[in-house]
Design a protein around this nucleic acid. Sequence first.
RNA 1: GGCGGCGUAGCCAAGUGGUAAGGCAGAGGUCUGCAAAACCUCCAUCACCGGUUCGACUCCGGUCGCCGCCUCCA
Length: 517
Amino acid sequence: MIRLFNSLTQQKEPFQPRDPGRAGIYCCGPTVYNLVHIGNARPYVTFAVLRSWLRHRGLDATLVVNITDVDDKIIAKAAAEGRTSEKIAGQYTAAYIADTDRLGLPRPDVEPRATEMIPEIIDLVCTLISGGHAYVSDGSVYFRVRSFADYGKLSKQRIDELEEGVRVEGEPGKADPLDFAVWKAAKPGEPSWDSPWGRGRPGWHIECSAMGLRYLGAGFDVHGGGRDLIFPHHENEIAQSEAAGLPFARVWMHNGMIRSDGEKMAKSVGNIFLLREVLDRYEPATVMMYFLTTHYRSPLEFSTEKLDEAQAAYQRLADVLADLEFRIGSADRAARQGEWPDLTLRAETARLAFAEHMDDDLNTAGALGELFGLAAEARRYLAEVDRGETPLDAEALAAVCEVVRELLAALLIPAPTSSLTLTPAGSVRGAAAGACATGDVALLSAGRLAAEERWDDIALVCEDRLACGDASYACALRDHYRATRDFAGADRLRELMHAAGFEVRDTPQGTQVVKKS
RNA sequence: GGCGGCGUAGCCAAGUGGUAAGGCAGAGGUCUGCAAAACCUCCAUCACCGGUUCGACUCCGGUCGCCGCCUCCA
């Protein structure tokens, strides 16, 4: 059973979709006036993972993430840069899509633009007016907060307390300082649409109500977003929708803030790190790892140290996987008997434990811990194999790999590509023999040189190949050096390989290299 | 002032009424020609003070510290 923490009730509740077998999720997306920073990205990651997990659990899950492409901030930026609002919005919409794609997030099922939702918004506003929940004033329309008895049910604020805190000296057209605009009269030069109240544009909160209801229907399952949106944005969404007679989201999920220097990451504070900047320095997998090793509701500090740790953690998992897959490939037939079901069983146990964590309010950190536990278990098993205490069971290894890959995929963490390269079988001479079949000229000539004992020339070939990112010749030569106990030569070659960005590991099967990023 | 949340080892981070997953870093050891990697071992009593309980880190009350919202904000 999946349980989700509902901000409305402030507790975990069993997730009961409105339509059995299906799930509708709405998440507040970007206002496209700027490049998205790491903090903006957290909800996109969180709710993409939620959709992924619900699907993994067999639900037909739909994710809607809006794009606010008409708004005060966009208009202000356009004015400042002497460009049109449409141009600004277009540019940053493209950037948002490019950056989230680059992170490796699958696109939402629907990405509606506010500017495409005008008719629905106008309909909703009309309903509010005729129901007495909104009023027209100078071509703008305001929502009458005191007309909605449940106002404050999400943020747990009392209207009267709010009244005290209101610092805005009442805008001219508002009947009550708490009221908020659902439709704003157009000023000259601003983007605008025809409406029963004259030309204008949607207010700040109305688009989310219109979109959520349009694409997911009344009483949809989950509404998500950053914790900082609870008030007033989400509170207002509820008020607008439900005052119009349409039950809104039944579960509200809010992710914690990303902090930088102990403070919420925000443009106004000046402590932001752009998603694309981070992706310039770290792999998508590392960044996903960074997000998911902390529970989505907790605050998360941003720092390069944390990214580095995420990188190391991911590398550990990638190493295990690469090692396992290499062994599967090299296992002889006799070993493929499934003699060690314990590990297979362990893989299944990990899968179940992982699912339990994920079902428990999307506990990705706990779930990841299970994956690491399984990896460690597989390592111990491999160590036993290397000591000759246990026969190699390729089936069990395959089961572990399958579970790790499947669950990483469920978390939307890109699977590692195999980073292990092994020496061609045997020495350079032996490898050259094999090269006859494949027609590898370079390896053949290396073999000829080897036959003539011209090792220095071979070293030159190795250097050349290393520069091209190919360590196989170096591996083969190093095996030769080690076989002939020419350790000075072997060490020299290791230096070369290091310099070329390869980590060198000696194994019973020969020299192994790992390309270091 | 109002509302909400957090405080777990050197760092990060799960968890929980019956004596604390995992990752990073650190120490010692095994393996190795030397390394690297790996493996083994070691490293916390859960901010503080009271209370409830056979038993609390986990429940209740208080104290301190930190954070978010109350204005655009993921």
